[in-house]
């Protein structure tokens, strides 16, 4: 089961995601993120600590989310990726266009700069 929990403070929204993001759950993931993001939001951090797998359908949701934020003048960052998922982002070259941070604190610090 995929789970997305949002926490927000003044500057950022963190979407803590849990489970597998594959073609079966990608739409659910997209719908959950769309619900989380408000038009005035300038930064979203997706916490990947408990994500066990992401397929290309999931990567597409990440990409669309980045575009949505870009359109409203915001930015997307990911944090706490497990090694296999970090590798997926590296091979696909997505780490060239999506900000990836070790920890949530580092992601938040990079955004508030």
């Amino acid at each position: 089961m995929l789970k997305v929990d949002a926490e927000r403070d003044q500057v950022t929204v963190v979407a803590k995601t849990e489970g597998r993001i594959d073609s079966g759950s990608a739409q659910e993931f997209q719908a959950a993120l769309e619900k989380v993001i408000q038009p005035e939001d300038k930064a979203l951090i997706i916490d990947f600590e408990n994500v066990s797998y992401i397929s290309s359908a999931g990567m597409r949701v990440i990409l669309l989310t980045a575009k949505t934020l870009q359109r409203q003048g915001g930015q997307l960052a990911l944090c706490s990726l497990t090694e296999p998922i970090r590798e997926v982002f590296k091979i696909s070259g997505f780490d060239n266009i999506i900000a990836i941070h070790e920890t949530r604190a580092e992601a938040a610090a990079a955004i508030s700069k």
Binding site: M59, L63, S92, G93, F94, N96, I97
Partner: peptide
């Protein structure tokens, strides 16, 4: 090191 096609 190339990125997937269609996004960048």
């Amino acid at each position: 090191q190339g990125i997937v096609l269609g996004v960048a």
